[in-house]
Design a protein around this nucleic acid. Structure first.
Lengths: 240, 240
DNA sequence: TTTTGTTTTAAACGTTTTTTCACATTGAGT
DNA sequence: ACTCAATGTGAAAAAACGTTTAAAACAAAA
């Protein structure tokens, strides 16, 4: 069964960002701007996960969260807010949210958190229905294995010691073999949208990543440069 | 989405005034005093809007405006000046500023103008995103395949090694089979408007492109010359 | 706080691409 | 065939880009 997620968010840009990146995971999206309408939908229909912005026209995300929680105690809810204030966070969790993301969030964070909720939901369903399966998300290409669960990377049975950023970078590139990403795109998907940092930073990380995964860092076969464009993951570089 | 605005202004008081009143709108601010550094930032990083004072140490705001506009045609720019002279205003707009404010300005005016630019930016982003939902990412004509995702070009299953410019040139021509483009038009669409260079450059690139894709570069069948007019892509040249 | 490790920024350096230019060639009109 | 202007060619200069290294900023842990 394809999971369905209700996104309640008034910023069209963020909503689209979420849509694109969840659809990529094979998740169906419904988008609602108005708080009141969203509440109605959330109560009437079935969604695997609710993604609620806190600041909304019509009704606060916190209100929606509380009312949904009353009627549907098992509903998975992730709160979403621009504020970074601790009070909101605490309040959100107290009102029954299962998780919380502060904007700006990276695409990977978004996917990870939603996936985490889906796993929980599926586990519950499995427990009650005594059936079901939850696919583990790990990348296996050639002799490269990237496991996001354990955050481990193995190349030819050799465990690599990557930092968090290096891992995300490699994971994102490897998730889209052969696709070229500009430094700007990488900043958006790995660091988070509208991340303000120099594109130069990407070079630095690519450099260190290569030092760890390439046999010969001066002639990269796995993470390759596309001149004047960006970087790409070359699956042939890890072919068995 | 939190928008970020770069304020380039050497008067600390004004800079603070701007900061306070834009933060109030939920906008993130970066402040830069020196013109040269500001230009670097503006080119390397991403900002929703640039607020440029004209009189600056290091480099004039007009120069910054011009140079940013060349590299980032879509960047929203608001010029800022103490002078009330019409010439500056005209000059600023000619150099590609989107809006103009003369000091002293009211807080309401500041907020209104910035918000107006943000609206435009968001609208554009939304428009391009929607357009990008069903993107013609790859071109397939005869035995020629051009893939934007991977930035790869295959001719008769043979992978061609094109530079970024060569790729764009071929892509643009192939996107409009049989349509003749003048060198000037090509400069505009491939290099970008406001490009200051000789039309002769196009010849050079066509030349190198032909050397790579044509069987016989002296008798081009794919990228053909239309005497006295320009160049065109001939689909018959790659027919199966 | 100190220490350690990571991330970001900056600068120096080497490479590739782009541009430019001089000259050769081609095509249209006479 | 001749001439003129448009186009093609190839090589050198200039610019753009990418890598590397080191240092600074930052954050986490001891």
């Amino acid at each position: 069964m394809t999971d369905k997620v209700l996104v309640v968010e008034d910023d069209i840009d963020i909503a689209n960002l979420i849509r694109v990146n969840l659809v990529e995971l094979g998740i169906e999206i419904e988008h609602e701007i108005d708080g009141q309408l969203a509440l109605k939908k959330a109560l009437d229909k079935h969604y695997s996960v609710l993604l609620l912005d806190i600041m909304l026209p019509g009704m606060s995300g916190l209100d929606i969260c509380r009312q949904v929680r009353e009627k549907k105690p098992e509903q998975a809810i992730i709160m979403l807010t621009a504020k970074n204030s601790e009070t909101d966070r605490v309040l959100g969790l107290e009102l029954g949210a299962d998780d919380y993301m502060t904007k700006p969030f990276s695409v990977r964070e978004l996917q990870a958190r939603v996936r985490s909720q889906l796993r929980k939901v599926h586990f519950l369903q499995q427990a009650t229905q005594e059936q079901g399966l939850s696919p583990e998300k790990a990348i296996n290409i050639g002799n490269l294995r990237i496991d996001q669960q354990t955050h481990q990377v193995k190349l030819a049975e050799q465990l690599l010691d990557l930092t968090a950023t290096e891992f995300e970078l490699l994971f994102h590139l490897a998730s889209h073999p052969n696709q070229v990403f500009s430094r700007c795109q990488l900043l958006e998907s790995v660091w988070g949208y509208h991340h303000s940092g120099y594109e130069h930073t990407v070079n630095s990380h690519i450099n260190r990543l290569r030092a760890k995964i390439e046999l010969d860092a001066t002639a990269p076969r796995i993470v390759q440069t596309v001149w004047g464009v960006g970087y790409k993951f070359n699956p042939q570089g890890v072919a068995l």
